[in-house]
Design a protein around this nucleic acid. Structure first.
Lengths: 146, 146
DNA sequence: CTGCACTGAATCGCACGCGACATAATGGTC
DNA sequence: GACCATTATGTCGCGTGCGATTCAGTGCAG
């Protein structure tokens, strides 16, 4: 009984973990060609959606801390995809902007969703359904601390 | 159109990533009390299910490489939860065994599934359903390289 | 029995990811 | 104007996670 429930719970947790890693590994060759890691890709997606955001704003969307984002953004800047600068009106904030090179990457990023659609055999309804269930779980977990 | 599909795909991928991290963060306080990280907990679960396994065997179940497991297992050994030793019949393999302290931890680990059931409001059918869909996705991703 | 391909672990370098802490700027309050 | 809590970012240490490589042991071919 205690054994049974232990198994069930961790299998869902573990299923999520291992699937996240599987996606990470599977997309790596494509992202390598763009010179991005998966977390860097996510940051670029956020910026493609809306340019000129603060570190905190990006972190809020991606559930990441500044301690994670700062080094990551420095690598994106070193790669020439973004440009970081202090907001003159509030020197505490750092605004992150896409460079031309970063914007150009947007077009080349289409292969990721293409790949994903293939892996899903085009069943986008299933994908949407699954996404909403997972997001629901995430919200429950976030709301249920300790 | 391309924009739309870009958004959908990464939202499922991202939903999985962020949920995995959320679970990680939420279970941390409980795991801290046991002196385990989440990946270490997963290794213990594997060993609680079947003691005396090789590094490769554990890695196969958890989709992890030896480069990840070796340091992790050394930390578990340093913590006194497992014991590692070369298999005398095949000196290439390292067998990992639970110590008494490691077995004892099994009883204390019940709080993790308890917490999870709470977070899920006891709807274990939903959990099972979701798990099977995610595992299906994982298998598709693993089978669909490039 | 001597190579030689193969296998299983371990090592190395790099990139997350976070908690704890440090730092700097802001916006009050007195 | 000086103090002080708050906010935004950055730094540090530790633990994953992986690809590339190394190394020791195995086992097969000749």
């Amino acid at each position: 009984m205690a054994d049974d429930s232990l198994r069930l719970d961790e299998f869902l947790c573990f299923a999520i973990h291992s699937t996240a890693h599987a996606i990470n590994r599977a997309t790596k060759p494509m992202l390598d060609q763009m010179g991005l890691t998966y977390p860097q890709y996510l940051v670029m997606v956020v910026l493609w959606g809306k340019d000129d955001q603060t570190v905190g704003g990006i972190g809020e969307k991606l559930f990441l801390e500044s301690s994670t984002l700062t080094p990551l953004l420095k690598r994106l800047e070193a790669a020439g995809y973004v440009q970081r600068s202090r907001d003159p009106s509030d020197e505490r904030q750092v605004r992150v902007r896409l460079t031309d090179k970063g914007r150009e990457l947007h077009c080349r990023a289409g292969c990721i969703p293409d790949w994903f659609r293939e892996a899903f055999d085009g069943d986008m309804d299933e994908a949407r359904e699954l996404k909403s269930r997972i997001v629901q779980l995430r919200e429950r977990v976030l709301r249920h601390p300790e």
